[in-house]
Design a protein around this nucleic acid. Structure first.
Lengths: 359, 359
DNA sequence: GTTGGCACTCGCATACCGTGACTGCTAGGC
DNA sequence: GCCTAGCAGTCACGGTATGCGAGTGCCAAC
């Protein structure tokens, strides 16, 4: 909200077809429109920003920016607003990185210091934090189970004909799968557990093949029928076939945005937010690298949320990106601030996960 | 939506100060207002429903119903709408129980037949189902952990100085708590696990006292410092101090309701829905019996959602209510239909939980 | 290349007014 | 004593006219 206005000549890297002045005008239109949600006219620019030329000149420049596809006039006799391409240029080349307010920085650190050890709760807390600070919709894609490292398996005999296979990953997620089997001895299961633990140590869940498990069972001399049971238990624990869980927060902030006073738009967006699979699909391809991914308007690939943009930052565990956190808001969002916010939060989450790892 | 209109003389149990005709008029006003969201006038009543008297007579009756506090006139020259007390009387004494459409009945059964074994997913699926069928906001309060029965504990030695305590409840929820300790032997931990399992068998999580655990550790001859660790692990697993998790779905349906076109109202309600603790507080006192609890408007005890009503039904595991499912919608909701829907869903959930119990 | 001026466009807010849906009341009828 | 037809009064709502203001494009002059 309180982003710094562009400084004249601050364009980092003007694209070929934009000279310094045009770049500054584009950046300023973005800044002003983000701040006010009103189309920006030539008079506003000359009065609020020191441009050294008259509004007529600005009008000429803006007409050219519109011809170049960077600006749009919502209707005759209105000011201009940035187009998707305009935002894209701004984000890629003109935007000044913005440091996070120290208060916010502290808030993030405090939050993670006080965070629980349970993964579910950490995810939820992160989402809420991000929603509050961004005053937008925030969502977090939970760590994909099959990317986590295997830590421990324990087979337990509950008596009668049932047993329980408990698989624990390095992030402390325990999955228990009940199974049925003919008479087994508790001791045998304990021994089998130990063999599995040493055979599978160091692998990620995804790397564990059915063959690995089968071999261990075969060597143990226990009934071969256990193989299928255990393979199923591990498949259950790694959830390979399902999309990861998504947690969201902050939908109420949409109501503060003038672009969502229109109930039809609001409804389609709310629908997407509630349907976690749809949220995941929006960002599924952004789980690469460590840098923020920004998708603007139509780039999201969905007709229903062309009014929105999404900033996504992967977070990592060990050396691999295992999940993402994201901010979804109107296209007219304070990109620099939110990028800083999301990056900083991801950083803290990385640290937190590394610290709570079960070794 | 397609609730049956009241039949003349269908008032189940007219209260003392309402004769048959007044009761019928009240029931009909509720029915008509629920269906149309428009204040109901005397002409509508005489034309659409066979009353046998003229609109003037209805006007007189309605004036008396208003004096008695059952109806409200939003403004002069408008029809009447039910007051909280009017709805209350309707719900308690006039409403005809309504069978669920067979299609819906089947949908519910199918959904639970296909439901996963994992508790989290069952809860989420139930919430989504209820939101879709009610076309309202649905939420489910997850089973309180401390009401579940203890099933199994397994202490695992991971090596170095760390171990893991895994506690499994009868609903298949596994909680793992890492702990640090001086050198322990894996065998000792296994033996201790077994002792704990037989000592605690049959108790609910809530019934397990610190003393119970301490006694077992003492008898085992293992270091006393383990006592505190294990007590902490069990406290962690039963989550005695935290409110239970709440999952919600269907917020987008609010937008279809004329009473929430006003964005201010919408915002405060969305805020409550997103803040799960607030949702839980709305219904925390309704986890008794098996019958639906209905709270209407001001009865919810929150100024922000006086426009709403909530239908809550506890669901049970074993002999005890462990959680609740709820429908939150505008006060003007089809009570009979939603009561049937919520009850039927709770019933199916009861059955499902009983079937997936870990013995 | 820049600027002041001017005519033009168009969304938006406001005020106004007619319409229609109610009501309450009264007087007369069964 | 209850019911009803009729009537006057009230008020929200929708549509239209109007004025205002913001902003543009264009042009001639510098």
């Amino acid at each position: 909200m309180t982003a710094r206005p562009p400084q004249p000549g601050s364009a980092k890297n003007a694209p070929l077809d934009l000279d310094k002045r045009k770049a500054f005008i584009l950046a300023t239109v973005v800044y002003e429109y983000v701040a006010t949600a009103e189309p920006v006219g030539s008079n506003t620019l000359t009065q609020k920003y020191n441009l050294g030329v008259s509004s007529a000149t600005i009008r000429n420049e803006m007409a050219e920016l519109e011809a170049g596809g960077y600006l749009i006039q919502p209707h005759t006799s209105a000011g201009r607003i940035p187009s998707d391409a305009g935002y894209r240029t701004y984000v890629d080349r003109l935007m000044q990185p913005e440091p996070l307010a120290t208060g916010e920085q502290r808030r993030i650190q405090d939050e993670f210091r006080a965070a629980s050890r349970e993964l579910d709760e950490v995810i939820e807390q992160t989402t809420r934090l991000l929603g509050q600070l961004s005053r937008s919709v925030a969502f977090v894609v939970a760590p994909q189970r099959d990317l986590q490292a295997f830590r421990h398996v324990q087979l337990i005999w509950l008596g009668e004909r049932t047993g329980l296979a408990i698989v624990v990953t390095s992030l402390g997620v325990a999955t228990q799968t009940p199974f049925e089997h003919e008479n087994l001895a508790a001791d045998d299961l304990t021994r089998l557990s130990n063999r599995l633990n040493s055979a599978l140590a160091g692998k990620t869940m995804r790397q564990i093949a059915a063959r690995d498990i089968e071999n261990v069972v075969r060597d143990s001399g226990l009934p071969a029928s256990l193989e299928k049971t255990l393979v199923a238990a591990f498949a259950d624990a790694s959830r390979a076939d399902e999309p990861p869980a998504v947690v969201s927060s902050g939908a109420q902030h949409l109501l503060d945005q003038p672009e969502f006073q229109d109930l039809r738009k609001l409804r389609s967006i709310l629908r997407i937010i509630e349907e976690h699979k749809a949220l995941y699909d929006l960002v599924a391809d952004s789980m690469t690298g460590a840098a923020p991914h920004i998708k603007i308007g139509h780039e999201l690939g969905s007709d229903e949320i062309t009014e929105c943009s999404v900033i996504t930052v992967p977070y990592r565990f060990g050396d691999e990106a295992v999940g993402m956190l994201a901010i979804l808001g109107p296209r007219r969002m304070p990109y620099a601030r939110l990028v800083a916010l999301a990056s900083s939060t991801a950083e803290s989450l990385n640290d937190h996960l590394a610290n709570t790892e079960i070794r």
